[in-house]
Amino acid sequence: MSLAPYTCALDPETGTTIKIYLIKDVKNVETIRNNIINGVWKCAVIKPSLILDLFQIVVAANRAVLSEKTKSLVTKTVYSEILYNLSLSKNISQSLTKFGIEKDNSILVCFLVNDIGETEEIIKEIEGELCPLSDLSNFTNVKDIKSVYKLNNLKSDDNLLDVIVSKIVTKSFVSH
């Protein structure tokens, strides 16, 4: 059982790597929200209940860093862009509310690393229990995911991740 973060290189042109941690029983959610909203912390915090697979986050983050590189962010920061990209909504506030944390006590924390970052310091300030990422499925709510991505009529869950990723990728030019 590894508590190491999930790490993945994003588009090579950006020189960016994503690091994702899963934390449960978080006691200082309001402090975390405030630190992110006020720009004190450079990270995205995501509701794990709406994440079927980490690939979902990687795709959204890759789009975000590419948008940042081309100076075409829809939101104010690359981190809020990740949440925006995860959502089907083109309404920024709705996207941030749906995928960001509110009162949830389990969270996924996502960092974009271009160099040696402050990830470990931020993780130490989160009052909760670090979990292995293999436990993500214990936090996932497939019913909520299907609702958020408008997939309630899907007959089978076999290709659910493929459908979700396709919706994320085509968001900018298809209305779902």
Rank of each mutant, 00 (worst) to 15 (best):
L3I: 08
A4S: 15
C8H: 15
C8S: 13
C8G: 00
A9Q: 13
P12L: 06
E13Q: 14
T14H: 05
T16W: 00
T16M: 09
T17S: 14
T17Q: 12
T17D: 12
Y21W: 13
L22S: 04
I23F: 05
K24E: 15
K24D: 15
N28Q: 06
N28W: 05
N28H: 06
V29Q: 14
N34V: 08
I36Y: 00
C43I: 06
V45D: 03
I46D: 04
P48Q: 11
S49L: 05
L54I: 12
L54R: 08
F55I: 07
I57E: 07
I57N: 06
V58G: 05
V59F: 01
A61I: 00
N62Y: 02
R63T: 08
A64W: 00
V65R: 02
S67V: 00
S67E: 13
S67K: 14
E68G: 09
T70K: 12
K71G: 10
L73P: 05
L73Q: 04
V74R: 10
Y79F: 15
S80W: 02
S80C: 09
I82R: 03
L83V: 07
L83Y: 07
Y84C: 08
N85W: 02
S89E: 13
K90Y: 11
N91A: 09
N91H: 08
I92K: 15
I92M: 07
Q94E: 15
Q94T: 13
L96M: 09
L96K: 04
T97V: 09
K98A: 13
F99Y: 12
G100R: 04
G100K: 02
E102Y: 02
K103I: 12
N105M: 06
S106R: 01
L108D: 02
L108A: 06
V109H: 01
F111H: 03
F111C: 02
L112C: 06
L112P: 04
N114M: 12
I116G: 01
E120W: 03
E120T: 09
E121V: 11
E121S: 14
I122S: 07
I123E: 04
E125L: 12
G128D: 03
G128K: 02
G128N: 03
L130M: 10
L130S: 04
S137E: 10
F139L: 09
F139I: 01
K143D: 13
D144M: 05
I145V: 14
N152R: 10
N153I: 03
N153D: 15
K155F: 09
K155H: 13
S156P: 00
D157Y: 03
D158M: 02
N159G: 02
L160R: 06
L160I: 05
S166Q: 08
K167D: 01
K167E: 06
K167I: 07
K171M: 04
S172E: 14
F173L: 11
F173K: 06
F173Q: 08
F173P: 06
